[in-house]
Design a protein around this nucleic acid. Structure first.
Length: 856
DNA sequence: GAGTTCGGAA
DNA sequence: TTGAATCCGAACTC
């Protein structure tokens, strides 16, 4: 028997959630015993909590029957990390705790996983199912158990017993009652109620009539009902046999694939065996069982029951979902029994025989189709790991009409191409619906690929697109694939789930995060997160590239820094820190270094002015929003095929809309505040590097940061996601060899000063272009006034004139002249047509010429 | 094809 | 923790 040891206090993010919670049983002055956290019991100070707190309380973490040690008075700043509610030192450790990898926080539902533990792998597989990963660093992974994460666990087929049994197995301490009770409470209520689409009508369905009776009485839900009576409809539930997902081992009869598969399986078994061996040390029974087997076994257990239901208004689904999910903690699961569906036509589609999906894709799909039906939910895979193929395989499994939504017209085209590439679908059945390509929607089963905006457009719809839209909203879809699903919660995009009637929804994304809190809406708009891949694991296995991340600290020059200190606006400050000459030099050095290694380099800058300065200063081609399509293609083609062009500069246009499989090195010179998603997305640009399988290949990711500026703060914030994924950022404070580099820009004081004055001038006028442009008309102040406001202003008459100079260069005279001449509308006349006066036209010409010179 | 409008991002 | 300012793409119009 091991002596009683102290369990460490845990602190961190999850605890924040509880900070304001009424339920936290912390009290420094009360000796009352706490019988629970519900807050409406009459013991303890919480009894005073007003009734409206009820929901808040409910949504909190494990209802705690755990009573921590009585608090002590805080003594110093660090003391809050060891507050009474986080001090679990009185928890009894199991004798063989060193073999078990989990630390459980009985109050906040936080879990710390030791990666060096012998049973780390099984514990991780298990935790992925029941908890949200917060952070995965070298030695510790941090998870949190929430209502949603448990909901996801239940929805992929785990039972309360499975969860408790495994937790007990992995935990270093005896499983606290608070957690057992929480799991019980949550699993009892979750997965009980389903949302079902039948004959274009929506029903709330359950095997348990009493739950539905309760819902009918709910004031919000009752208003969403279609029938008046309290009678429920009742019918027998159907039962189905097992299902085979295409592209998996069961699906492949073919010998060769079989052999290959078997070899892989054998390796897999060997790996598992290794893991098991370590298991046996403490007799882990359940851990041996792979999660997918769990899923298969847990199938069809509700076949005996009758199914009860009531109908709700199709337009109020979101309201019902929100009510159930957020307030009643009774999330609606959406499952589509597509094999029993005879109403909707079957789509003739299958994966091409040679197509094999990777193990994690299969894993993800087995979560979706685990019980023979299609569950709605979200699958998280890093860029380049084959999200598209997951979507296509899902479509091939259901074999019903599919609608694919993507963010841009380009990616719509790519989806269509991928469908044709991987499956045997008739190309005529894959229809693109964007503003530039409006296919006709046939009545038969088909695949529609369209942009979100095409579906969500509210006003001014072209006639033919309205026609197509009607076709889409009128019919029932089997599967809706939402690409880049993290964009969906934005209020606009909510409409897609409202407008399109679909039986199942599959969300795909690489980065399930936003800086706002709308991300949690996904839980009821689409469904729970079904699967999330571990980036590091995939890169170790060679599915995506290995990446070295580094943050390069560039000291500010004295002049720049003193200007930075004095700068009044953040705009000026950020420009100064971006244009820091030392940073420019670092950039130049890194480009040179990697070009010589044979890398293809992308340099990102959010700031367009800086982008131009850097690119032109280094004589490299660049692309930003205003760059025309033809020019873009020219630059990209050269980047891809021309060895002389190894570096291109991109504005944030490159974040999403360009496909750049050649890139192997990425340098970031400025970025948008603390956006973790942008950082992750940019990293994603090099994950699909074609050369990733070369021996010892590494991709590189640099962030250039000016020291002693806000950039330092933002940079650390941005990295949070990647660090949580397990990436390590090296800090480089000095680039070896930069001092001896020939032709370094901004070496002389003169050059630096010129740059500084340029930057200062720019920062004063940035975003206000008309001020600097027009040297023909010198009295700026007058015509700016005359211009009638800026971008947002201008109630009547000519709108948005001041957006560019052109609107008012030479002021009203030009416009007036044209007005007189033609009979065009006001709007059109506001801008002078004469290219000579247009700064932008001149600028465009100049740029085109410069780029051509560079490329040819 | 160029320009306008709108909405999103964070 | 919030907001302004900026950039960008899609859809539509002519």
């Amino acid at each position: 028997m091991a002596p009683k040891r102290k369990a460490p206090a845990v602190s961190g993010r999850a605890s924040k959630r509880v900070a304001s919670g009424v339920s936290t049983p912390v009290s420094l002055d009360s000796d009352d015993d706490y019988s629970g956290s519900e807050g409406n019991e009459s013991t303890g100070p919480n009894s005073a909590a007003p009734a409206e707190y009820d929901n808040v309380i409910k949504s909190y973490q494990p209802s705690s029957t755990y009573v921590p040690k009585k608090g002590k008075q805080p003594r110093d700043a660090a003391d809050q990390l060891f507050r009474a509610d986080r001090d679990f030192s009185d928890q009894q450790l199991k004798p063989d705790h060193h073999l078990r990898p989990l630390w459980l926080d009985p109050v906040h539902g936080k879990v710390v996983l030791e990666t060096f533990s012998p049973s780390f792998k099984q514990a991780q597989n298990f935790l992925i199912n029941i908890a949200e990963p917060l952070s995965r660093t070298n030695n510790m992974h941090e998870y949190t158990i929430t209502a949603h994460s448990l909901f996801a666990a239940v929805s992929v087929g785990l039972t309360e017993q499975d969860i408790v049994r495994q937790m007990e197995l992995f935990s270093k301490t005896k499983l606290p009652d608070s957690i057992i009770q929480y799991v019980h409470k949550v699993t009892q209520s979750f997965g009980k109620v389903r949302l079902v689409l039948k004959h274009s009508r929506y029903f709330i369905e359950s095997n348990d009539a009493s739950v539905l009776q309760m819902l009918i009485r709910d004031p919000v839900i009752s208003t969403c009902r279609l029938e008046e009576s309290n009678e429920l409809q009742t019918e027998k539930a159907a039962k189905m046999g097992p299902l085979v997902i295409p592209g998996t081992k069961e699906a492949h009869g073919n010998k060769e694939a079989q052999a290959r598969k078997e070899q892989q399986q054998q390796q897999q078994r060997q790996r598992e065996k290794d893991d098991e061996d370590s298991d046996d040390e403490f007799g882990g029974q359940a851990a041996e069982q792979d999660m997918t087997e769990f899923l298969r076994e847990e199938e069809d257990d509700d076949d005996l029951d009758e199914v009860h239901s009531f109908e709700i208004d199709g337009g109020k689904i979101q309201k019902v979902q929100q009510q159930c999910n957020v307030y009643l903690e009774l999330p609606l699961t959406e499952e589509y029994d597509f094999r029993a569906d005879v109403e909707n036509a079957t789509l003739d589609i299958d994966l091409k025989p040679a197509t094999q999906i990777r193990y994690y894709q299969e894993h993800a799909l087995s979560k979706m189709f685990g019980n023979g039906r299609a569950r709605s939910g979200i699958i998280v895979l890093p860029c380049g790991a084959g999200k598209t193929l997951v979507g296509i395989t899902a479509a091939c499994t259901e074999k019903k009409s599919v609608i694919v939504l993507c963010t841009s017209a380009t990616s719509a085209g790519q989806w269509r191409a991928e469908f044709i590439k991987w499956s045997n679908v008739n190309p005529d059945d894959v229809i693109i619906f964007t503003s530039s390509e409006k296919g006709r929607v046939p009545l038969r089963a088909c695949i529609i690929v369209c942009t979100y905006s095409m579906v969500t457009q509210n006003t001014r719809r072209a006639y033919d697109s309205q026609q197509t839209m009607d076709q889409i909203t009128k019919r029932e879809w089997g599967l809706m694939v939402l690409d880049e699903v993290h964009v969906v919660p934005a209020d606009m995009f909510r409409r897609v789930t409202e407008r399109i009637k679909t039986h199942s929804k599959l969300g795909l994304t690489a980065t399930l995060l936003r800086e706002d809190d709308k991300i949690k809406d996904l839980n009821f708009l689409i469904g729970p997160k079904l699967y999330e891949a571990n980036w590091l694991q995939l890169s170790e296995e060679g599915h995506i590239a290995r990446v070295q991340c580094a943050e390069v600290w560039c000291p500010m020059t004295i002049e720049f820094h003193s200007e930075y200190i004095q700068a009044k606006t953040t705009n000026k400050r950020s420009l100064l820190s971006i244009m820091n000459p030392r940073k420019f030099q670092a950039c130049q050095f890194l480009i040179d270094f990697h070009e010589r290694r044979g890398d293809k380099i992308i340099v990102f800058s959010d700031n367009v002015y800086a982008l131009k300065q850097y690119a032109e200063g280094l004589k490299k081609p660049y692309i930003f929003g205003d760059t025309g399509q033809r020019e873009r293609d020219l630059v990209l083609q050269n980047f891809q095929y021309n060895d002389a062009v190894s570096t291109i500069f991109l504005s944030k246009i490159g974040d999403t809309s360009l496909d750049l499989p050649e890139a192997t090195c990425l340098i970031q010179i400025s970025s948008h505040y603390g956006s973790r998603r942008q950082e992750a997305q940019r990293l994603g640009r090099i994950l699909r590097a074609k050369r990733r399988n070369d021996e010892g290949f590494n991709a590189f990711f640099y962030s250039l940061v000016s020291k002693d500026t806000m950039e330092m703060y933002y940079s650390s914030k941005r990295q949070a996601f990647l660090v949580d994924q397990g990436y390590a950022f090296k800090v480089i404070t000095h680039l070896n060899g930069i001092d001896s580099m020939p032709n370094l820009r901004f070496e002389t004081q003169d050059e630096k000063m010129t740059l500084l004055t340029d930057v200062l001038l720019q920062s004063e006028t940035a975003g206000d272009e008309e001020k600097i442009v027009d040297d023909l008309f010198s009295d700026r102040s007058t015509f700016r006034k005359a211009g009638g406001g800026g971008r947002k202003g201008g109630g009547s008459g000519v709108k948005r004139q001041a957006g560019t100079l052109s609107s008012l260069a030479g002021g009203e005279d030009m416009a007036y002249l044209e007005y007189q001449r033609g009979s065009r509308s006001n709007k059109e006349l506001a801008k002078p047509k004469n290219a000579f006066f247009s700064k932008e036209a001149r600028e465009r010409e100049r740029r085109k010429k410069a780029q051509r010179d560079m490329l040819l």
